[in-house]
């Protein structure tokens, strides 16, 4: 009996030690600033795409901290920017899990991060109080407007990515066929039978449930708040459900026979290209390669590429750092 207890205790102690080691290892790898980029320096790949990023020894004196919000697409973008800046010779740190845009922006203002990728539509609605229908559909126009607003706050922004991301009302193909849904307006008279799932903040936001109610005049059977990570789970789980999805979601490309998004015919969900938000102070310290590298590395980021990179991280569970490194190499930016 005593022997058994001792053994059991030892086994438990070893298990705990193992769990602790794994936990520490996991923390270590996510904090490590350069884990992904070392893999990107192999020789193949190369000469297609926007040309290799040139490392400038002058930049090694500058340390940049790349931030991002806390969901997959943002984390991948953060990795891509971080590794590109590293390839340009900067010392790069990462802080890729910053929560909401207000948290991220506060960190930029406080100088704890150098910059982070933001959707131009989010910047205009969330930071500058624009109604969703006031957001220009043209990316350059929206960018100019946001940049001017940022400048009043002593911030600046770099030009937008080719891809745009927007929220969208999504559902299963089966539900869409059952009720004949193609656009959000088609929900009229049907929405009372359907439950809408969205992130907790969706309920109040004018570019989400509040807008669907106000601008489309829709009433849903129920709105249920869920974590962003569950937006497809809730569709899989039940019938007669709608869920707030992102147009860049890899699931939409990979499983187009299963999920559809409804066209936002009254423009409640403004589309947003990604702009890099930073401060003039950082721009001055970091020199011309800062903006050049950011703009150069995002040239190839169209909707297809972003969906595919997202699919590898979200569906195939590859680490974002590796996916970003392999993208940079395949597109000829590094290696």
């Amino acid at each position: 009996m005593r022997l058994n207890q001792t053994r059991l205790r030892m086994a438990i102690a070893m298990l705990l030690a193992l769990a602790l080691t794994l936990a520490l290892a996991a923390c270590g790898s996510s904090d490590d600033s350069s884990s992904g980029s070392t893999e990107a320096t192999s020789t193949e790949g190369g000469d297609e795409g926007g040309g290799a990023i040139v490392s400038n020894p002058d930049n090694s004196k500058v340390t940049l901290t790349v931030g991002s919000k806390n969901f997959t697409e943002q984390i991948i973008l953060g990795e891509i920017y971080a590794q590109a800046l590293e390839a340009a010779g900067y010392k790069v740190k990462k802080d890729l899990n910053l929560g909401s845009e207000t948290v991220a922006l506060k960190n930029v203002k406080a100088g704890t991060i150098s910059g982070y990728p933001e959707y131009v539509s989010t910047a205009l609605t969330s930071f500058f109080g624009k109604e969703p229908e006031e957001v220009p559909a043209d990316a350059t126009e929206a960018y100019e407007e946001a940049k001017a607003e940022f400048e009043k706050e002593n911030l600046t922004a770099f030009p937008p990515t080719p891809f745009a991301s927007a929220n969208a009302v999504g559902t299963t193909v089966a539900t869409a066929e059952k009720y004949g849904l193609e656009t959000v307006s088609d929900l009229e008279g049907v929405s009372e039978k359907l439950t809408l799932y969205g992130s907790p903040e969706c309920r109040q936001r004018i570019d989400c449930l509040a807008g669907l109610e106000k601008l489309y005049g829709l009433k849903f059977k129920k709105f249920t708040p869920v974590d962003i990570g569950l937006r497809y789970t809730v569709l899989d789980k039940g019938q007669n459900n709608l869920s707030i999805l992102f147009t860049t979601d890899p699931q939409l490309a990979a499983e187009s026979d299963k999920y559809v998004i409804l066209e936002d015919d009254k423009k409640v969900f403004p589309a947003g290209n990604v702009i890099w938000v930073t401060t003039p102070k950082v721009v001055e310290e970091a020199g011309p390669d800062y903006e050049k590298t950011i703009v150069q590395v995002q040239e190839g980021l169209n909707l297809e590429v972003v969906q595919e990179l997202g699919a590898r991280v979200e569906l195939e569970k590859e680490p974002a750092a590796r996916v970003a490194a392999e993208y940079l190499e395949a597109a000829g930016y590094t290696g």
Partner: peptide, 18 residues
């Protein structure tokens, strides 16, 4: 709980945006 479909006081804490 608001991350799993049930609204509690956590709604105020989770949604700093709002």
């Amino acid at each position: 709980a608001p991350l799993a479909g049930y609204e509690t006081l956590g709604d105020f804490i989770i949604n700093e945006n709002v």
